[in-house]
């Protein structure tokens, strides 16, 4: 069953890729079409998705499609991914320091750290250490928070 679902998802993906390649304008005389490689790759992807789908259907017909792998931990990963998305977006709104101070203890908690002192220390230590290494020592310009930037506030 898993191969069937994977095959269907990939088939839709390849159809979207074929459509995307088709949008590339035709080549000017004496040149090659810029869409030729994306088009060829997406057609090949469609063919392989078909193979995956057929293999999955055949396996489910012959009863070889056994239960594969549990979903243990998937919910935690989805939660962590959601945190990752919010964290990266919040750089744009609040700069680096504030989001890191909030996310560090949350991620530590997800990974099983239950020491409240440790979690509290991470609120200050993580943004401070990363800020010193990357934005002070390496000289990278920190992301600026459009709504509120704690670093700006600290610097007055």
């Amino acid at each position: 069953m898993r191969d069937v679902v994977e095959g269907i998802v990939l088939a839709f993906l390849s159809l979207a890729a074929i459509w995307g390649a088709w949008q590339v304008p035709a080549a000017s005389p004496g040149d090659t079409w810029a869409g030729i490689v994306p088009f060829a790759a997406s057609v090949a992807l469609l063919a392989l998705s078909g193979l995956l789908l057929l293999g999955g259907l055949r396996a489910s017909d012959t009863g070889h499609d056994l239960a594969e792998g549990g979903d243990t931990g998937t919910l935690d990963i989805l939660v962590l991914f959601a945190i990752a998305l919010i964290y990266q977006q919040s750089f744009r709104w609040f700069g680096y320091v504030l989001p890191t101070a909030i996310v560090a203890p949350v991620v530590l908690y997800i990974f099983g750290v239950r020491n409240w002192i440790g979690l509290a220390v991470s609120v200050i230590a993580c943004p401070l250490i990363f800020h010193i290494i990357f934005f002070e020592l390496l000289g990278v310009f920190p992301p600026y928070g459009e709504v509120f930037d704690l670093l700006d506030w600290f610097r007055g």
């Binding site: 990752a84 990266q88 996310v103 560090a104 530590l108 990974f111 750290v113 993580c126 990363f130 990357f134």
Partner: peptide, 15 residues
């Protein structure tokens, strides 16, 4: 390990 991977998580973003 429960401290190592959160630190790697945070490093990935800043890196």
């Amino acid at each position: 390990v429960n401290v190592l991977y959160p630190l790697i998580f945070l490093t990935a973003f800043v890196a």
